[in-house]
Simulated scan of single mutants.
Amino acid sequence: MKRLFDLCLATIVGVPLLLPLLVVAILVRLTSPGPILYWSDRIGRRNRVFRMPKFRSMKIGTPAVATHLLADPDSHLTPIGSFLRRSSLDELPQLWSIFRGEMSFVGPRPALFNQHDLIQKRSEYGVDQLLPGLTGWAQVNGRDDLPIPEKVRLDTEYLERQSFMFDLYIIFLTAIKVVRSDGVAH
Results as ranks from 00 to 15, higher is better:
60 I>M: 05
34 G>L: 11
26 I>S: 11
120 Q>C: 00
138 A>M: 05
74 D>E: 13
115 Q>V: 06
109 R>G: 12
30 L>S: 14
111 A>E: 05
80 I>Q: 07
67 T>V: 09
36 I>R: 04
109 R>M: 14
107 G>A: 09
26 I>E: 10
97 S>Q: 04
140 V>Q: 01
29 R>V: 13
95 L>A: 03
149 P>A: 01
105 F>I: 06
144 D>C: 10
84 L>I: 11
65 V>T: 09
98 I>M: 12
127 V>L: 06
138 A>C: 03
145 D>E: 14
100 R>Q: 15
72 D>K: 10
48 R>H: 14
94 Q>H: 08
131 L>Y: 04
127 V>S: 01
4 L>R: 11
149 P>V: 05
132 P>Q: 04
62 T>F: 06
33 P>K: 14
140 V>C: 02
10 A>G: 12
150 E>Y: 03
116 H>L: 09
123 S>P: 00
109 R>P: 09
121 K>A: 14
5 F>K: 12
18 L>M: 15
34 G>F: 12
7 L>D: 10
105 F>K: 09
93 P>M: 11
134 L>Y: 10
29 R>M: 15
28 V>A: 14
63 P>C: 01
103 M>F: 08
125 Y>A: 02
68 H>R: 11
24 V>W: 11
145 D>P: 00
79 P>Q: 09
144 D>E: 04
